[in-house]
């Protein structure tokens, strides 16, 4: 894939000139195979951020839904994005994922269990990698719909997810503002799905990049909808904004889909009204909305403890 060549080159350069010498100096060379995966993840993450910025900033300037006197709260969202897509979190996730996966796989292999793959279940897909990837994307989006929906159903879970909804200045940077425990649950969820149907590795990073771009775009502060048909094919900024509405925050909401609105249509949670609503969660502590990264994480934790004690969200 010619489009991917510059990104692959950058990841290779990073691996060869920065990461490997660092692993060598710190006595962690056993991770060299995984570290290249992280380098690719980080480079494509950086590309996602750049592309999202290039597309969403003009849209937010040209057709904003809301005007704010200052955008201090957005800076923290930018930090979330950098940590999540480029920096530390993918590194920790890779090491953690690899460790857990190794132990789990070893445990399963001892019991003669080999986890299935989608292609193993549907052999016709063998040799059709692009189609297979698209089907995986659909299946994973379906799983993501239910993870997201359940995070609004259980009070204790929503107490963590409220951090994502607390932002009153929702922009394309808000996609990654999550409580770290909420991210951890998402990570376990993803691992279970991976065990059930397998997950293709970075075979098609450009497609992953496009999907992540759509997720960023869906949070953008812009008056943009994809038209009657388009709104029913892909999640638009208008569609996802309805999910972040003040009145929709909490255990009852609408439009849970990440990339595809199909699941909302299928399970009766779709809201295609033309309105561009005000975002935020009125039940969230102020620290969750405008606090620093640490203040937001602490507020999320406090709310979780309170929820576990009282049973409320």
């Amino acid at each position: 894939m010619q489009l991917a060549a510059p990104f692959d080159f950058a990841a290779g350069f990073l691996q060869e000139n920065v990461i490997l010498p660092l692993l060598y100096q710190t006595g962690l060379m056993q991770w060299e195979e995984w570290s290249f995966g992280w380098a690719l993840f980080a480079v494509y993450g950086a590309a996602q951020v750049l592309l999202a910025t290039a597309i969403c900033v003009p849209l937010e300037r040209l057709r904003p839904v809301e005007h704010w006197p200052d955008q201090q709260a957005v800076w923290v969202d930018m930090l979330y994005t950098m940590l999540s897509r480029v920096g530390l979190l993918p590194l920790v996730t890779f090491v953690l994922f690899a460790q857990i996966q190794m132990n789990l796989n070893g445990w399963l292999a001892d019991r003669d269990i080999v986890p299935p793959t989608l292609e193993g279940l549907v052999p016709w897909l063998l040799g059709r990698p692009v189609l297979t990837f698209l089907i995986y994307a659909i299946v994973l989006d379906f799983a993501e719909y239910w993870r997201h929906r359940l995070s609004h159903v259980f009070n204790w879970w929503y107490s963590l997810h409220a951090l994502h909804h607390a932002q009153r200045q929702m922009t394309f940077w808000s996609d990654d503002r999550n409580h770290i425990l909420d991210d951890l649950i998402g990570f376990v969820w993803f691992m279970v799905v991976a065990l059930l149907i397998g997950v293709p590795p970075m075979q098609f990073p450009m497609l992953v990049l496009l999907l992540r771009l759509l997720e960023s775009l869906s949070h953008a502060n812009t008056r943009l909808n994809f038209g009657w048909l388009g709104e029913r094919l892909l999640v638009s900024p208008r569609f996802h904004r309805a999910h972040h509405g003040m009145l929709a925050a909490g255990v009852t909401s609408v439009n849970y889909g990440a990339v595809l609105p199909w699941w909302d249509m299928m399970f009766g949670t779709a809201d295609f009204s033309a309105e561009y609503v005000t975002t935020g969660d009125p039940t969230a502590e102020e620290a969750m909305a405008t606090g620093s990264y640490i203040a937001q994480q602490s507020a999320g934790l406090r709310r979780l403890v309170r929820s576990l004690r009282t049973g409320e969200a």
């Binding site: 190794m102 796989n105 070893g106 292999a109 001892d110």
Partner: peptide
């Protein structure tokens, strides 16, 4: 003989 790097076997 097969080494399973990720599966510890």
């Amino acid at each position: 003989v097969v080494a399973g790097l990720a599966r510890q076997q």
